[in-house]
Write a protein that binds this DNA or RNA. Sequence first.
DNA 1: CTGTGGGCAACGTGCCGACAA
DNA 2: TTGTCGGCACGTTGCCCACAG
Lengths: 383, 383
Amino acid sequence: MEGDRRSVNSELWHACAGPRISLPSVGSLVVYFPQGHSEQVAASTLKEVDGHIPNYPNLQSQLVCQLHNVALHADLETDEVFAQMTLQPVNEQEKELFLPPDVGTQNRQPNDFFCKTLTASDTSTHGGFSVPRRAAEKVFPPLDFNKQPPAQELRAKDLHDHVWVFRHIYRGQPKRHLLTTGWSVFVSAKRLVAGDSVLFIRDDKGQLLLGIRRANSRQQTVMPSSVLSSDSMHIGVLAAAAHAAATSSRFQVFYNPRTSPSEFVIPLSKYRKAVHFTQVSVGMRFRMVFETEESTLRRYMGTVTGIGDLDGSRWPGSKWRNLEVGWDESSAGERPRRVSLWEIEPVSTPFLICPPAFALRPKRPPGLLGDDNDLKRCLTWLR
Amino acid sequence: MEGDRRSVNSELWHACAGPRISLPSVGSLVVYFPQGHSEQVAASTLKEVDGHIPNYPNLQSQLVCQLHNVALHADLETDEVFAQMTLQPVNEQEKELFLPPDVGTQNRQPNDFFCKTLTASDTSTHGGFSVPRRAAEKVFPPLDFNKQPPAQELRAKDLHDHVWVFRHIYRGQPKRHLLTTGWSVFVSAKRLVAGDSVLFIRDDKGQLLLGIRRANSRQQTVMPSSVLSSDSMHIGVLAAAAHAAATSSRFQVFYNPRTSPSEFVIPLSKYRKAVHFTQVSVGMRFRMVFETEESTLRRYMGTVTGIGDLDGSRWPGSKWRNLEVGWDESSAGERPRRVSLWEIEPVSTPFLICPPAFALRPKRPPGLLGDDNDLKRCLTWLR
DNA sequence: CTGTGGGCAACGTGCCGACAA
DNA sequence: TTGTCGGCACGTTGCCCACAG
């Protein structure tokens, strides 16, 4: 077993992972997508899957599994958070025996919590860290304003239980909260640059915790490719899943929320709700949640422009990213061109702005692309 | 293909890899050992193979392959050298068609070359780098001794073609060669500490090259385990080899000379010479080459104490590390307890010091462990 | 011949309020 | 409210030689 590493503080892990990330409950049923896992490997190695990967004809595009264990970890070098999940494929008959009680663990951000994106001044060697007023008042212990200037020593634990000590002072004209002594060693130790974020939490016992989120644009851990060829990694992912499916035995999956393009272990209930109760059709309008540069959530609107296999030769009929989509705002072009059904929230099409002729078309059989002329005319009309 | 990275300078690569490392020639026939490859993964991840790995009954413990390509690389973060080999399993009948012309590429260290282990003074922030006199005279361009003091600017390329600039000066009482300006940025950029080594080469065109060798004791790249479970990595290695063997198709192997406990791609001619022309038996005396702390070669003497499978359940009859050995010098205990036949040089047993009764024992059938009492008495007698 | 340490100058780090966005 | 800057003190870096192993 690889259980010799201790799990890290769950609240801090989720704060570092960001508001969009939730993990399925231990014991519940989930759907595991080898394709998604492979995409995470591709994102980590910067190598796409090429033609050398053998087919695993007995490996389905999705495996219903029981989630036996979730361990939360953080990379020792980079502090990147990741989750180690123990999965076990379940047989068809077992699937109906027990349905999971809920959809996901609490992914709510802690209450006494703040997250600030670092400025050039925060990360320069010239000075310290400027703490937003409200943040300092919410999560730091109150200062003694009788002292001149008011100051105290802060101690905060990171994901590895390393304690960082900062001098917290309230000074300047106008007055502001600053972290001075101790700040620069933290910045250089964690190799923070302007654009990265720092977050502080006050937990139940009043202890301070702190974590970091690197800027979305920054390359996360570029897997040192010196150990294993990316081919072998992709094969390893598929062969491990195929072996587990064939023998109904447990296997290990590492999920990197901030590297992986999408979650690939989905609560079964969420999956079923999306697949069985959503009438998806070309032209359907939907919303989808993304994390902004400022680490907040934002919904973007889009339209389904096609339904079909992402990789028809290897994974025919897979539900993984089988929806082609377009986005209303063409400006920020970092949004995916393909999504999966469970990632989106359908929006009841406002009949007012779309002629009934298009909106009421009979649903096309899934997996088949129809003539897109109608759709194009509709979209043009919408502009 | 993963050929988008450029190969690095071969001479410099071999200098960094060390004198013990040689690579098979491109085009030649080699023997590939999945077990050895797996051991490299274990060394990189610090995770031993556990029981969760499926068996690949169709995968032999050794594959005869043609070596189609060798690309020399270096890790961008750590400068660790590694080789990417393209292998293709060959059929039984093909094996005899062409025998490789030679045993290995030139692994001789370059002529105009020196390697110095860094002292505390070399790596401290207090000063520069003290260049051994002979080394400076052999590889650096000659100084103009009319100048007072004699000094010049040195430019040297590393494995990534990054140019480092140093001020080379000859001063002090007594006079000595020093690198001053530019040295400390190099030390901190490469994260060198006392005990690591730096090497300089003057190539054919008079250009200076430089590289590093980290101290043997220092942990090399600890694979950030956040991407792939070590189980999946081991499975990936085995499944990739099994697939290639089944389809006679090419596959990629990454060899890390300084991380891997042993080479696992061996020239076929070397393998055959060792296996067919060596009468191995318990009690046999041999020598084996190791790299010392000072980056030089040294031979150690040992005795074969047993012959048998390293992993009888998974790899029965494998020649990989099937010799159990003891070493004459018990002091330095970092030498392996098991070796493979092609790693050692048999020494004709001096009959003078061992009673003929032991030395002339009939050879035991390989793979079977005999009664060790005779051997033990012999070894005791030798002390 | 070369590793370490004292002396000393130059430079960078880091704390302060001023100012403005 | 908070990001950046000039001012300034102090600690570190880095070049020099002396000395000794």
